[in-house]
Design a protein around this nucleic acid. Structure first.
Lengths: 242, 242
DNA sequence: CAGTTCATATAGCGTTGCTATAGGTGCTAG
DNA sequence: CTAGCACCTATAGCAACGCTATATGAACTG
């Protein structure tokens, strides 16, 4: 049960911290617990890791390796947006599988100082979104898309972790995921045959707005503004996407 | 600077805790700091609030009153989806205005035990979404929609809080917001829009068009034209006057 | 005026993260 | 073989933490 054996103290500390972190149901993990399980004393911990946060960062780094490995294993499908979907699901699964570790990684929010791990995860997403953009499948900047998707992804995962296991409904994840990917993509989402509806959604919405505006005159725009607005609306409505 | 004067100790403790919480830049706030600022000793705190978390819960309850007040002030526009938009924006603004309090309210995630405040906020959203559903504007269950929107809303707010103030870009919020609202709302063709009141159809169609434009890049307008177009679209979408 | 209840203070417990200091270990140099 | 050195670990303890057993004062009640 303990790591007293063959490994060097640094490794023992890492494993003890990881184990205690994984088994503590949200409760705080003390340095004394860690050092006792590792079979070392306090100064050893501070010699190798500086402070408690340093040790946790090291644990997180190891956890992040696993996270990244999971993200990259799914990568080469050739369809970036499909890969984004898988990265989202892998993110959620990672969080539900190791909630304590996930909370240390993504839940440790403080004002004006975001965990470096967030930037890394954002980079992974952006990397994949760059491929989507190169394939002409993106309607917004890859960086903005990555930030938006990651924010929603973290929010959903945190919400799922906070719920009792019995009540966890992954539909929350799939629904939010598809909404975000759809919002970011030029095409109509994960399924094929999207060119047609992707175009028509804009056109239909523009036509609808045009009709609605004429049915009830809005006082939010001046008459000159409205004239130009309707002209643009018409231009959009009669566009043929190419 | 301190609350030594006329107020009863319970109030002094609440205000001291709120003040320290607001001014501590992410650092932990100790009971000794609070009791010293309030001009009382430790047992007084525990007599009135049980423990530290109890005191913080009381502070949060007061903060939640403010939050709810902000949410409800925007309520009676008559257009549920517009109200949802405003609830989202109010949520983000609340988080950015009082990040420490927000983190105590929404950032204190633990596995299998979510803050009661989340359920309350979810209830507020669901209440409004029920009206949207009654008006035939929803394509998913109000409860699922509320969960999904709130998860994304919290995720975005946490992400914005974690960023340096100078780098905070609210477009992350508006983009994610519109994506989520569009995802839960029913397709707004001319028929569905025409059945509603005139103002409603304008707003709904504008929201749909806005989301559709985000999702499907249109090259019919120049970037400067598009910028102004979206600005007007936004103005129409957020109109509340009847 | 005695009894009860509520509210606050004195003093201190056990635990926390962390460290000043010292001792042990394995290496290379002479 | 030993002297010196760098690395690693242990002993012991500090200041701060959340919290509480106990006691004292104040205010109301009979």
């Amino acid at each position: 049960m303990s790591f007293d054996g063959q490994l060097p103290p640094k490794m023992r500390l890492l494993r003890a911290a990881a184990e205690l972190l994984a088994k503590s149901a949200g409760a705080a993990v003390s340095t004394r617990q860690i050092t006792q399980l590792a079979g070392v004393t306090a100064p050893t911990l501070y010699h190798h890791f500086g402070d408690k946060e340093g040790l946790f960062d090291a644990v997180v780094a190891a956890g992040f390796e696993e996270y990244v490995a999971g993200e990259r294993d799914f990568a080469p499908s050739g369809q970036p947006l499909v890969d984004i979907r898988r990265m989202w699901d892998n993110h959620v699964q990672f969080g539900l599988k190791q909630p304590e570790l996930y909370l240390v990684m993504f839940g440790n929010i403080r004002p004006e100082s975001r965990p470096a791990i967030v930037a890394d995860a954002e980079g992974l997403l952006e990397e994949m979104l760059n491929k989507a953009a190169a394939a002409g499948q993106l309607s917004v900047q890859p960086r903005e898309a990555a930030r938006s998707i990651l924010a929603a992804n973290v929010g959903v995962t945190l919400m799922l972790i906070a719920e009792p296991v019995a009540e966890r409904n992954l539909e929350l994840s799939t629904m939010t995921r598809d909404a975000m990917i759809f919002a970011v993509s030029r095409d109509q989402g994960p399924d094929a045959a999207a060119e047609d509806s992707g175009k028509s959604s804009v056109v239909v919405a523009a036509i609808a707005l045009n009709a609605a505006l004429q049915a009830s005159h809005s006082d939010q725009l001046t008459s000159s503004e409205l004239k130009l607005f309707l002209e643009w609306l018409h231009r959009i409505s009669t566009s043929s996407t190419g």
